[in-house]
Simulated assay, not measured.
Amino acid sequence: MEWSEVDYLGCLQSERRGYAWVMQHHGGLTPTRAWEAALERYPYEPDDAPFRGLLFHDEAWHWAMLAIHGDRYVVEHPELAHPSAEYLDS
């Protein structure tokens, strides 16, 4: 997919915000550390980077749950398989 810079930056900011929210509310990180984790997980990719934005194929909720609970989180924590209402409202 071709991203305009405005679209890419908007998506990047949104996913970072969602990831940080999950890391704070479910991962127990401080707001500062949660934001740092989001920046690490969602680094800026230049517009000529191959597969720019590929990370966006799954929602920030999923990537954060993988970081917190591991790749079997859907099996071991089925209640977390889908984003919570609080996350969606954040």
Rank of each mutant, 00 (worst) to 15 (best):
residue 63 W to V: 01
residue 39 L to M: 13
residue 79 E to R: 09
residue 76 E to Y: 05
residue 37 A to Y: 01
residue 81 A to V: 07
residue 41 R to S: 11
residue 5 E to F: 08
residue 8 Y to G: 04
residue 27 G to F: 08
residue 16 R to D: 01
residue 46 P to W: 00
residue 90 S to P: 01
residue 40 E to L: 09
residue 31 P to Y: 03
residue 47 D to T: 05
residue 3 W to K: 07
residue 32 T to M: 11
residue 52 R to F: 02
residue 66 L to G: 02
residue 1 M to A: 12
residue 16 R to V: 03
residue 58 D to V: 13
residue 59 E to D: 15
residue 47 D to Q: 13
residue 2 E to N: 14
residue 66 L to H: 09
residue 48 D to C: 06
residue 68 I to F: 07
residue 16 R to A: 01
residue 23 M to D: 02
residue 38 A to D: 07
residue 81 A to E: 14
residue 49 A to C: 04
residue 34 A to G: 03
residue 54 L to K: 07
residue 40 E to N: 09
residue 83 P to L: 05
residue 39 L to C: 15
residue 15 E to F: 12
residue 32 T to G: 07
residue 75 V to Y: 10
residue 57 H to S: 12
residue 60 A to S: 14
residue 23 M to L: 08
residue 26 H to I: 07
residue 29 L to W: 04
residue 17 R to N: 06
residue 78 P to Y: 09
residue 72 R to N: 15
residue 29 L to V: 04
residue 90 S to Y: 10
residue 29 L to N: 10
residue 51 F to G: 00
residue 45 E to Q: 14
residue 33 R to N: 12
residue 54 L to W: 08
residue 67 A to F: 00
residue 13 Q to N: 10
residue 51 F to V: 00
residue 67 A to Q: 10
residue 27 G to W: 09
residue 72 R to W: 05
residue 24 Q to L: 03
residue 76 E to R: 14
residue 88 L to D: 11
residue 61 W to C: 02
residue 86 E to Y: 12
residue 42 Y to S: 02
residue 15 E to G: 00
residue 35 W to S: 10
residue 4 S to P: 04
residue 26 H to W: 11
residue 46 P to T: 08
residue 59 E to T: 10
residue 16 R to W: 01
residue 71 D to Q: 11
residue 23 M to I: 06
residue 5 E to A: 13
residue 23 M to W: 04
residue 7 D to E: 13
residue 15 E to Y: 12
residue 40 E to I: 12
residue 11 C to L: 09
residue 19 Y to L: 05
residue 85 A to C: 14
residue 10 G to K: 13
residue 38 A to K: 06
residue 79 E to T: 08
residue 75 V to N: 03
residue 43 P to I: 10
residue 83 P to H: 07
residue 2 E to S: 14
residue 41 R to E: 08
residue 62 H to K: 05
residue 72 R to D: 14
residue 4 S to V: 10
residue 21 W to N: 03
residue 61 W to Y: 04
